[in-house]
């Protein structure tokens, strides 16, 4: 039950963020600090989640394949800006490294 409640609450909060500015009015500007901090929300929060979940993954499987997959995915992500290619590269290297190790 509490899972459903957090889902509904998180969904309402998300719609409030995207629809809120147009519901409030068309003249007021967002505070500068909020606009500026917004640039860093995605890399910081997603980076934190990625770090934690990769560390958890390394502790449940093996460290080397996880590190190898990250080492493969990062340059591909930075070079291509794609969402899928880094995952494909990282997964392929993970399979190879796990097989070798």
């Amino acid at each position: 039950m509490s899972t459903w409640i957090t889902l509904v609450a998180a969904s309402i909060v998300t719609v409030a963020l995207s629809a809120g500015p147009s519901l409030i009015g068309t003249r007021s500007e967002l505070p500068a600090i909020l606009r500026h901090a917004n640039r860093f929300a995605a890399p910081a929060l997603m980076g934190a989640l990625a770090g934690r979940s990769l560390a958890n993954q390394a502790s449940t499987t093996a460290l080397v394949p996880v590190l190898a997959s990250v080492a493969a995915a990062v340059p591909v992500a930075l070079r291509t800006r794609s969402l899928s290619l880094p995952v494909v590269a990282g997964a392929a290297v993970f399979v190879v490294a796990a097989a070798i190790g």
Binding site: A42, M46, S53, S69, V70, A73, V74, R81, G90
Partner: peptide, 21 residues
């Protein structure tokens, strides 16, 4: 499969890196 469990962290990592400018 271990590789399936690795996909999700890799997607999150890709999302994070995509936001790096």
């Amino acid at each position: 499969l271990p590789v399936l469990a690795t996909l999700s962290p890799l997607v999150i990592l890709s999302l994070a890196l995509r936001a790096v400018r």
